[in-house]
């Protein structure tokens, strides 16, 4: 939409106003990110590079605190998460799936099964 895409910061979509994470609609580099969605629009700063489709913390989250998306709990923080950090397998765990932390954070490939 912008005349020069590189000039406008990447957009992350917040589904529910209660969410503490938003989903990136395009890849982000460290720097400004526009958070758009049901809570209006605001700008935050990405702490690191985050891929398209992945989640960025839009609030500071304490260890053990719930990760909220769609307005519901999708997991728990396994350590402190700063606003602007990537939220994924390295700092968020399922409350059901015991294998949740056994996957490679980039590829998703399981690391808890040995191939000799």
């Amino acid at each position: 939409m912008g005349s020069h895409p590189a000039a406008s910061p990447p957009v992350a979509f917040q589904i529910n106003a209660a969410d503490n994470v938003a989903t990136l609609l395009e890849p982000a580099m460290p720097g400004p990110v526009v958070v758009r969605g049901s809570a209006g629009e605001k700008q935050i700063v990405a702490e690191q590079a985050i891929e398209h489709g992945h989640k960025i913390a839009i609030a500071t989250i304490a260890p053990g605190e719930s990760i909220i998306k769609f307005g519901v709990v999708i997991g728990a923080a396994t350590r402190a998460i700063q606003q602007g950090e990537w939220v994924h397998l390295h700092n968020c765990s399922s409350r059901l799936d015991e294998r949740s932390n056994a996957f490679d954070v980039r590829t998703g490939v399981p690391e808890d099964v040995t191939y000799e």
Binding site: E51, K55, V73, L89, C92, S93, R95, S100, F103, T107
Partner: peptide, 10 residues
């Protein structure tokens, strides 16, 4: 997971 989903709940 690689696409950005973290848990079965999500």
């Amino acid at each position: 997971f690689a696409g950005g989903l973290t848990t079965i709940e999500e």
